[in-house]
């Protein structure tokens, strides 16, 4: 008999986000990322397998995230105007660890990253902010241009790196709030979705209580 609900929905997860004094160099090559910064691989709990590696780390200046997708056969589809229809990486952050709140507060933000689709030849990576639906309160506007993003597209996939400065994260206050809500979903037009906790069927995009908790504790994981 199949699972009644996704197994990951039976749990709330907490993990430590790796601290790095110096942020990785953003060049799309992913050379400065190590296995220690890999995010938990929980898809197996629901009998799925991950098709991509996803990394994340933090320091006092902000949060960096990266992913590598391999084994693709078809070209990428990225449309910045309809980013949700193509290949993209989205992350959700809640700068307050309120994992029982079912509607987004002003500390909740959703960022999206596309490996291509920007710039004059539509070859450059794209970063943006997407308002969270049904939010109780929207996060204030942020200077999106400050988000740094780099990518490298190959025949069999792509790699993507991004850095979100603390100024783009509303409520980024590591002294007072070292536990944050965190979620990622990687959408691939060939192989579907890879996500941290729950998928679309359980409304991750409106319900922050479905996200995981990331601990930004420098003492517990000193570099």
């Amino acid at each position: 008999m199949n699972a009644l609900i996704p197994n990951r929905f039976l749990f709330s997860f907490e993990f430590q986000l790796r601290y790095r004094r110096d942020m990785p160099k953003l060049d799309g090559k992913l050379t400065s990322w190590t296995d220690a910064e890999l995010l938990p691989r929980l898809s197996e709990l629901d009998g799925k397998s991950d098709f991509a590696d996803v990394w994340a780390c933090w320091n006092e200046t902000g949060i960096a995230i990266a992913c590598r997708v391999t084994g693709r056969h078809k070209p990428l589809r990225c449309d910045p105007k309809k980013f949700w229809t193509g290949d993209n990486l989205r992350i959700c952050t809640d700068m307050r660890d309120a994992r029982t709140v079912k509607r987004a507060t002003r500390f909740c933000q959703q960022f999206y990253f596309l490996p291509t689709g920007g710039g004059p030849g539509r070859k450059r990576p794209v970063a943006g902010v997407n308002p969270i639906k049904r939010a109780r309160e929207d996060a204030p506007p942020i200077p999106v241009e400050r988000i740094e993003v780099a990518s490298r597209v190959t025949k069999s996939g792509y790699s993507l790196e991004a850095f979100i400065p603390g100024k783009c994260l509303n409520g980024f206050d590591l002294l007072e709030h070292s536990r944050i809500g965190f979620y990622y979903i990687l959408e691939d037009t060939e192989r579907g979705q890879q996500y941290l906790t729950v998928g679309d069927d359980l409304y991750w995009y409106v319900d922050p209580s479905t996200w995981a908790t990331a601990v930004l504790d420098r003492m517990s994981n000193p570099e």
């Binding site: 009644l4 929905f9 907490e14 430590q16 220690a36 890999l38 929980l42």
Partner: peptide
Amino acid sequence: RKKSGTNRNGLAGVRFKWHGFFPAINRA
């Protein structure tokens, strides 16, 4: 998670809360 330890197994440093089947199904 050990210092500079790998997270290839995907569960390093992960803790969890157990919601239980009834509350989780109810919530779903």
